[in-house]
Each structure stands twice: as structure tokens, then as C-alpha cells.
Write a protein that binds this DNA or RNA. Structure first.
Lengths: 185, 185
DNA sequence: GGAGTCATGTAACTTGTTACATGATTGA
DNA sequence: TCAATCATGTAACAAGTTACATGACTCC
């Protein structure tokens, strides 16, 4: 019955399957990857400690003359097993809470001008996001050429966002047109 | 500095701008609306009490012979003002954590068969979802015809999901094709 | 008779973020 | 000189879900 989720735990195990990393590296990896996942230090460090205690990861301290030492964590065989088990389970659709849509359905209360502004801002955000995504996509393709076996999958993730954004630009225009009609009538 | 979010608070204020409702009604409204927002009783009841204490909503008890009384809450002028202020502020893109994509980028570790299974399940979920969305869309259109001024906006929200899902079906096929190639080579 | 709906509400828990503390190095 | 990056970690908080308690009515 007890539904322990703790997705951070598996995100960390997963990324350590790429290669051994420090907590700092883990944070950076997700920050760079393109927006569909993030981890904060407040999750990463306690989770790494926990994973170490459970024997799912091992730790090696890299001595450095300057600044704090790097604590590099690697997946153990047990950790890999746990990761595998999790990967076989169907990803369940997480409950979404979309604030833009929430504001949108109160559009009658907000007024058409405010609603139009929301949509236009959203449109700009999406456009900007797509610029970044195309850069990341190209970067993943470069990694593929270099023989990184993970890059193909990361490119899929990037394209998920690209496809979605593409569709949402059309949606924005559709909505803006509908609002125009409302104002004219 | 203090970044109080509490989106439940505004979700509740917003929905009370449609019409006075009980906590039970609020939950049901979001459950019915089509998946881009939900509220649990654990959020609704304490928030309603808080909003009442702050004078943003008023409460009226409907006596009923059988079962518990209905506590019906209505937006006050102050509450409407607070809602307005919130509606004018740009909706910030919430940080997403997409579990499917997380599993996907560990596809090399999971193996092509497991990855294919994930994508196929996702595809089925989306297809099923679109069926529901089309029903909700039709329902919103019926409400529009009946003169509900909010229905146009709710239809926009539904179409947001329809457009997204449409794009993601194409994305799924694209990914599945790419996986096929991987296996063949 | 059993499932579902109506209807209130709370307590325990999980999950996650933000801000802070600390401090050196590097590059514009 | 100022911002960014490297690097560890914790404490306080916010947000939200789930499960429970309670109980009647209605429809199949």
C-alpha cells in the first residue's frame, strides 16, 4: 500500500548509470539537459547519503588542494539492479497543475485584455524555449556522432518538448484569434 | 522576498467567481474539468477556512434534513479584488518533472524492449485521454450555446491538451521508429 | 447487498524548494 | 572589482496527497 515515490532517488541512480558523479554534477546535469527535470541540492545530498547507507552507490573522495573535496558516487551492482526494476515499471502520468490554464479559465473575470497578455507572454516563453531546445538538440546530435549511446534517448526527450511547443504556438494563435472575435462582436 | 505561492488559494477564489460553491463542489469541479488541475480536500477545507478568516469569502450553511449540511462559500468584494490582482500577474512556467522522459533518457540502461513498452503505454494513455477530451470539448460547446460566458475559456484549456496530445502521438511514432532502426542495425 | 455519491473534515506523511553557511578560483 | 563557477551541506518551510473518521442515501 505504501506508495513510496521519491523520484529524486531514481533520477540520481539513473544518472549515475551514465558515469560516476558528484552531487554538484548531478544538479548541473539536470539543469543543462533541457527543462523536463530538475534536482535541488536539498534533495540530492540527503538522497546520496541514504543511497550510500543502503549500498546502492559507493563513494570515493577526490582530494583537491583548493576548495572542498569532490565526493564522487558510483552505482553499485545492487544499485543497478534497483534502477533496472524501476525502469521496467510503467511511468505513471503525474498530475499536472498548469497555472496558465488555471488563469485562462477565469478569463471572463480577468477580462480579454489580461487574457490576451497572458497568452502573448506564454507565446514568447515558448518561442524562447524552442531556441534553447534547438541548441540542445544539435548538441545531442554531436554527442551521438561521438558515439554516446545515451544521446539518442536524450534527443528524444528534447524532441518531446519541441513537438509540444510547436503545437502550442498554433494553439496560442488559435486562442488569440478567438479572443479578437470576442472583442469585435 | 517571501514567495508565497499557494495556488490552491487562487484556484478556489477563481472557481468561486463562477458561482458560490461548497468544498465538495470545488473538488468535483476540478476533477471534472479535464486534468490540467486538481484539488484535494486536504487543501480545500483548510484554505476555505483561512479565506473566510481573511474575509475573502463568506459562508452560508444550507440546512439539510439528511446528511451533513452544505457549507456554501461565496466570493466577497475583497476576495474578488485579490483574485483580480492575481489574474493580472503573468503565469510563471512551473518546473516540470516528467517521469516518462526521465525513464527515457536511461533507455540505454533499460534496453530497447523496455523503452518501447514505455512509449507504447504512453501512446495508449494519450489516445484514451483524447477520447475524454473530445467529450469534454463537446460539453463545453454545449455550455457556450447555453450562454455560459466561461465555457469559451474552458474550451481553450481543453484544446491545449488536445493539441499537445496530437503532437505527442506523432512524437511517439517517431521515437518508436527510431528504436526499430536501433534494433535492426 | 454492494457500489457509488453526497458531504464534512483532520492528521500524518512525502516531497520538494529556498535560503543560508562557507570559501576558493577564474575570467571579464 | 564583480559575477560566475566550483563544491559541500543543512534547516526551515511550503505545498500537497493519502488515508482515515463519520454517516446517510440512491441506484443497480
Amino acid at each position: 500500500m505504501a506508495q513510496k515515490q521519491n523520484r529524486s532517488r531514481y533520477a540520481i541512480l539513473g544518472i549515475l548509470s551514465y558515469r560516476p558523479m558528484s552531487g554538484y554534477d548531478v544538479q548541473k546535469f539536470f539543469a543543462d539537459i533541457a527543462g523536463f527535470w530538475q534536482e535541488s541540492y536539498g534533495q540530492i545530498y540527503p538522497n546520496l547519503r541514504q543511497l550510500l547507507a543502503e549500498g546502492l552507490v559507493s563513494k570515493q573522495v577526490e582530494e583537491r588542494e583548493k576548495g572542498p573535496n569532490r565526493h564522487v558516487y558510483a552505482l553499485t551492482a545492487v544499485g543497478q539492479q534497483e534502477l533496472h526494476t524501476w525502469l521496467q515499471q510503467t511511468a505513471e502520468p503525474l498530475p499536472v497543475r498548469n497555472e496558465l490554464l488555471l488563469k485562462l479559465i477565469f478569463g471572463h473575470e480577468a477580462g480579454p485584455a489580461a487574457t490576451r497578455r497572458q497568452l502573448e507572454t506564454y507565446r514568447e516563453q515558448i518561442t524562447a524555449d524552442m531556441g534553447n531546445l534547438r541548441i540542445v538538440e544539435a548538441w545531442q546530435e554531436a554527442q551521438m556522432d561521438e558515439g554516446d549511446p545515451h544521446a539518442l534517448y536524450r534527443r528524444m526527450a528534447v524532441r518531446h518538448a519541441l513537438r509540444t511547443n510547436q503545437a502550442l504556438l498554433i494553439w496560442c494563435d488559435e486562442c488569440l484569434a478567438e479572443l479578437e472575435e470576442l472583442v469585435i462582436e
